[in-house]
Design a protein around this nucleic acid. Structure first.
Length: 597
RNA sequence: GGUCCAGUAGUUCAGUUGGUUAGAACGCUAGCCUGUCACGCUAGAGGUCGACGGUUCGAGUCCGUUCUGGAUCGCCA
């Protein structure tokens, strides 16, 4: 049983006390981080969200408080009143190390069982346990700092948008399932039996309709839901900073977003972002980095070697070229000695995960080379490779031959993996870039049709509009992603605001007029009544927070995240629905077929 | 759906070629201790080795299945 506050008020946070407070009588409230009982003297480290302050219990000051303090254990919740004094022995390892509080009185507000995880930044308890006891895990200063930073980012964004005349408008959480794109989370409706809402994958359609309504500038920091598989940087529910503007083109959207990023990074992390940001077309990003979200903190750029091996007798290479594939390589310049054959074998295994069948390599040392493909390299091809990569002593060239997309994927991933292994990635180095001129479509092998790469409302480039029909594969979009250190932190586009173009777009996607009307009728209608040119962007707040805090795990920056199976280990969601609830919804469950043994 | 990694005390881990009663550190409990801050000293409690099955005279260790968590490919307009 804990004692009541009885009107007692906290005067300070523990971590805020300094030498300037010496002589003051203060009341602190918080959790016991640590008790050190020396017999006639008890020290208690009292923790709250601001930090830790040492409390001293001494019979000479208060017999009663001392006796009570004797029974105190870790994570007990205390209220302590006492005098701030200069410490006899200063602890330079803590911000409050110059002072301590001599306790006159102590209230034990709540006792605690021995916690299953140690409340300490250095605690490396299994994540399973941390997620089950998330409320304890979140007591750790590091975890609290992640969420404080997240708050500061959201708060800075709001300040920025407010100053720029953006209106925060809420859009529905219960909305219409979207046929294109990710899987929806479905929500049954009791008052509309056998009908379903979907949770929004993004407020896309609503924010565009707000532009049609004339709100001109909109933003919202809101949850989005996608029923897809999770990753280290992907959760099924995540938070988007969503933005839309009217009477703008690509450069206008990018310009204001550069100001936004500059503002946020300055406010939150005191980082000066140099604007305008670097810009790279999708095409260039792919050919130079093998990725549409390249990490440009380091080089190792891709180079084509097709012409060198045009007449090669090396079957792997000639096969790749014959089937209209590609041979490309990267130069891990200066690090040849860091990679043994065994290491390179491991890199080969790594890229097999991306569909590559093998990895050829060349090490340069003086006039000598070592290579897995020595017998297929003559003098002229060696010197040409040297020229292309500007290869010098101590360089290592890694080469992949395959279908073009496999080569890009494999080398794009490989250059990042190598950089990671070399430890040359500085998390404090923030390299932003815009990736622009995305293709409007990509071909879906399964469905045998073109699908929108971004979404079906993305505007084609003005000069590419007529390619909607004639050459969809090469039609470019007014779409742009904002990329930071290899992460896509946001993406957006200028939207189609002209119903005729929208119709042509639907046609290109293979929708009949009826299908388009059924799926997006309300949306198509809206654009018949005067839609302004408009466009916007959406950021992944979780990812931005990850990058600013320097963690590589999105769960760290979400208070109550899901596991890889989209479960919450603390609440045990999702769980079985009660029969009563199902009956009310007229839902029946089909038993899941067990795998045969 | 595929591939890979991990699971031993409350926690983090060690555990050799399959061999006696499964260890350490931290934490926890009790006692002593007035300047500790990784407090110290003494004593003690604490284990279905994730689960099930198999091989074996004998399994934490080998094999199979399965559960849980993680990384990743596919997927994520």
């Amino acid at each position: 049983m804990g004692e009541a506050l009885n009107g007692l008020k906290r005067s300070h946070y523990s971590g805020d006390l300094r030498e300037t407070h010496i002589g003051e009588t203060v009341t602190l409230m918080g959790w016991v981080q640590k008790r050190r009982n020396l017999g006639g003297l008890i020290f208690v480290d009292l923790r709250d969200r601001s930090g830790i302050c040492q409390i001293v219990f001494d019979t000479a000051v208060s017999e009663e408080a001392f006796t009570k303090a004797n029974g105190v254990r870790n994570e007990y919740v205390l209220a302590v009143t006492g005098k701030v004094v200069k410490r006899e022995s200063v602890n330079n390892n803590m911000p409050t190390g110059e002072i301590e509080v001599f306790a006159d009185s102590l209230k034990i507000l709540c006792e605690s069982e021995v916690p299953p995880i140690h409340i300490d930044d250095n605690d490396e308890a299994n994540e399973r346990l941390r997620l089950k006891y998330r409320y304890l895990d979140l007591r750790k200063p590091k975890m609290q700092n992640y969420l404080f930073t997240r708050h500061r980012i959201a708060s800075a964004a709001r300040r920025f948008f407010d100053e720029q005349g953006f209106v925060d408008v809420e859009t529905p959480m219960l909305t219409k399932p979207t046929p294109e794109g990710a899987r929806d989370y479905l929500v049954p409706s009791r008052v509309n039996l056998n009908k379903f809402y979907a949770l929004p994958q993004s407020p896309q359609l609503f924010k565009q309709l707000l532009m049609v309504s004339g709100f001109d500038r909109y933003y919202q920091i809101t949850k989005c839901f996608r029923d897809e598989d999770l990753r280290a940087d992907r959760q099924p529910e995540f938070t988007q900073i969503d933005v839309e503007m009217s009477f703008v083109d690509e450069e206008d959207v990018r310009a204001i977003n550069e100001d936004l990023l500059k503002y946020i990074f300055k406010e939150v992390a005191d980082i000066d972002v140099q604007i305008p940001l670097m810009k790279l077309s999708y095409q260039d990003a792919m050919t130079r980095y093998g990725s549409d979200k390249p990490d440009v903190r380091f080089g190792f750029e891709l180079k084509s070697l097709n012409h060198i091996f045009a007449a090669t007798e090396f079957k792997v290479f000639s096969d790749a070229l014959e089937s209209k594939g590609d041979i490309r390589g990267i130069n891990i310049n200066g690090y040849a000695d860091k990679f043994s054959r065994k290491d390179i074998d491991k890199l080969q295994e790594y890229i097999k995960g991306y569909g590559a069948k093998g990895l050829a390599w060349i090490k340069f040392a003086g006039n000598e080379i070592q290579s897995s493909i020595t017998k297929f390299l003559d003098e002229s091809s060696i010197s040409e490779i040297k020229r292309i990569f500007d290869a010098k002593d101590g360089d290592l060239v890694l080469i992949v031959a395959d279908k073009a997309n496999v080569v890009f994927d494999a080398l794009g991933a490989l250059r990042c993996e190598v950089a990671k292994q070399l430890g040359i990635l500085d998390p404090k180095d923030y390299k932003f870039l815009w990736v622009t001129d995305f293709p409007l479509f990509e071909y879906d092998e399964e469905d045998n049709r073109y699908v929108a790469k971004h979404h079906p409302f993305t505007s084609p480039k003005d000069e590419d509009v007529d390619m909607l029909e004639s050459d969809p594969a090469n039609c470019r979009a007014k779409a742009y992603d904002i990329v930071l250190n290899g992460y896509e932190i946001g993406g957006g586009s200028i939207r189609i605001h002209n119903s005729a173009v929208q119709e042509r777009m639907f046609k290109a996607l293979g929708f009949t007029e009826e299908e388009a009307n059924e799926k997006f009728g309300f949306f198509i209608d809206a654009f018949k009544y005067g839609a302004p040119p408009h466009g916007g962007i959406a950021y992944g707040l979780d990812r931005v927070t990850m990058l600013i805090t320097g963690t590589d795990n999105i769960r760290d920056v979400i208070a109550f995240p899901k596991t890889q199976d989209a479960k919450c280990l603390m609440t045990n969601a999702p769980s079985v629905a009660e029969q009563k609830q199902l009956s009310e919804l007229y839902l029946e469950l089909t038993p899941v077929e067990k795998k045969e043994i």
